[in-house]
Design a protein around this nucleic acid. Structure first.
Lengths: 365, 365
DNA sequence: CTGAAAGCGCTTACAG
DNA sequence: CTGAAAGCGCTTACAG
């Protein structure tokens, strides 16, 4: 019933929009912002559904109508209303991605991998950043689900219970990316940060270091750094002394460098017996390396320095920085591939992928 | 008419969803994905519109009903469908932001500034990256406008004609951020890259350099770097020799460092008379500085090195790097503030803001 | 290949 | 403070 009435009204409107004289008062509730599909249909002299088909599945419309419709679209400057389409079809081409921070290059690289893969399939990425706050993460997940996405990606395997419940009950494929370890909500791509820490322990032991410090930045928030520390500590148990330093400060892009710069002389003064420092990330390690360079501190003679992530700059310092390379862009691409497969109704090769890591031994250890 | 029918149907559905026995066959077209506002209304024993009010403007509903509704929302796990809300109200809380790249920390910092400001007002940022391709930018702008956003932000003042037309005709506030210079579509926040280049010219002249090279990376795409070069060249005219080097490669995060690292020995070998190099950004300059350190090249004795952006690492190298600091986070915040003011129907203090820059003279020149 | 009808899940505008 | 009606701009499901 409403269909009939509504169509009558919109047909009139379409005539107005396409320029036909019409003195009937407008019945719309508010200002008309944009050209609609009905107006295009009127312009092309076809039914709205035909315009819809011509746009979404051109092959299903005869060439003659198709070209008339394309012309009307062009002439009227029609831009489809995504909200209406999404509401009617119960489908969106938007994939939300939740990360803890954009200040950390690591997440940005994963995001780039995701974006490339997702855009190639005609999807759009909706980015949310939690600021390492799991409460904020929960709120963000709820809001983003309101966009009825076909799938969702979230960094990490640790969430508040309500977040996990919400995502599990959303009935869409979910990928948790960054680390492996515990059971995922649905799918998982990442690497074992515990094993990465253990690998660094083995490396430092092999090079003869026995009094080792781990330097973290706001470890309370960064549980992946805690996992690396755990791996280091367990692997060194009984073979070398380990001490944890948890530093503050250094917000924003490149902030970690300043923290490493400040930390080096502090730690050497307080615990002069240290012979090696494993920094939670390369930024901090590079900051320490630059500080050693300025102060004339011998690396690795006085103190060995290692980092984590495998940023390009690790290969450019003197000495080069020992680090663990994580395949970040690959994580993004694989995570997106898994999700897109499931969205398309296919089963991905695997639902849990460990992308591994590589220890690059440099001159700094 | 339709309203009556539809409401009859949905009332039945609501009863089913809330658990009342009902054998009538479902009339819906497809699977029911989520709890709807109608179901919450039925659960709380009120009209749907009252639920809508309780959610969007709690003060307009009596405390008694409000708490009954809140309880129903909680119990049913209701998540509002943003698409339906947006379609009905012709308003979205999503603000699209278009940048050329996420690999460049500079854009990421601007984005962070935007996100903070925008989230504080209850808006969500929808991020699009063009890969420095203005054709892609046009497509992205069109798609994003389909979400009927209340405003939009785009990096840069240069776009294809169709992009500018599309944005101008969208009837929403637009902020172009990053550089100042030409007339904006609507509002503009940034700094003059031409003047920044000229400022560096003055600095290098004052320090006695007379044979100066500008090193860019894919200058064809990076017109802001070209503006800095133009400013440098014009300011040096008649006072010093200038030469432009346009390098390739170095994609992705930190890629610029490798380019600077590779460039330094090349340039010194080919044009040994050079006495100063102004790199298009700090990443490249740091790469060159690290190369000089490894090769034992004296900076600034043999060659002076300067960068642009004012990244934190510029203060940590030995010697410290001369650079131009751009207030990136401020650009993001100011741009967002302007846009939000206009969205709220207020007039911002100004529609065109030059945030300026600061030249930090370091030991590298 | 084309179309008339119905509906997606909300909010606006009008009443009371 | 609360509600019945109508509509936002599309797509699905059913016909022909």
């Amino acid at each position: 019933m409403r269909g009939t009435r509504a169509r009558g009204a919109t047909a009139d409107e379409a005539k107005q929009a396409t320029g036909e004289a019409c003195a009937a008062p407008r019945r719309t509730r508010r200002r008309r912002a944009a050209v609609t599909l009905n107006e295009v249909a009127a312009g092309a002299g076809v039914a709205p559904i035909t315009v819809s088909r011509a746009l979404n599945n051109p092959a299903s419309v005869s060439p003659a109508l198709r070209s008339r419709i394309e012309q009307a679209v062009e002439q009227l400057g029609y831009v489809p209303n995504r909200m209406a389409g999404a509401l009617a079809s119960a489908r969106t081409r938007v994939i939300p991605v939740i990360v803890p921070s954009l200040s950390n290059v690591v997440f940005v690289e994963v995001i780039e991998g995701i974006q490339e893969a997702v855009e190639a399939q005609g999807y759009q990425m909706l980015l949310g950043s939690t600021g390492y706050d799991l409460g904020h993460e929960a709120a963000l997940a709820a809001t983003l689900l309101g966009w009825a996405p076909p799938g969702m990606m979230v960094a990490g395997l640790r969430h508040e219970t309500r977040t996990a419940t919400l995502l599990r009950n959303a009935g869409i494929p979910i990928v948790e990316f960054m680390e492996t370890g515990r059971a995922p909500i649905d799918m998982n791509v990442g690497l074992s940060h515990v094993r990465a820490g253990a690998a660094m322990a083995e490396h430092l032991l092999a090079r003869g270091y026995r009094r080792i410090g781990f330097v973290g930045l706001r470890m309370k928030d960064d549980y992946r750094a805690r996992q690396r520390y755990d791996g280091l500590r367990r692997q060194l148990a009984g073979k070398a002394a380990v001490v944890l330093f948890d530093r503050e400060g250094g917000a924003g892009q490149g902030g970690g460098q300043q923290v490493g710069w400040d930390a080096l002389p502090d730690l050497l003064a307080i615990t002069p017996a240290l012979d090696a420092l494993f920094f939670a990330n390369d930024e901090m390690a590079v900051g320490a390396l630059l500080r050693a360079r300025r102060d004339g501190t011998d690396v690795p003679g006085r103190i060995a320095i290692a980092g984590f992530n495998g940023l390009p700059i690790a290969a450019l310092t003197t000495p080069t920085l020992t680090t663990i390379v994580s395949p970040r862009k690959q994580i993004g691409r694989e995570a997106a591939a898994m999700l897109l497969a499931r969205i398309a109704g296919r089963e991905p090769t695997t639902r849990r992928l460990d992308v591994g890591f590589t220890l690059e031994a440099g001159g700094s250890t």
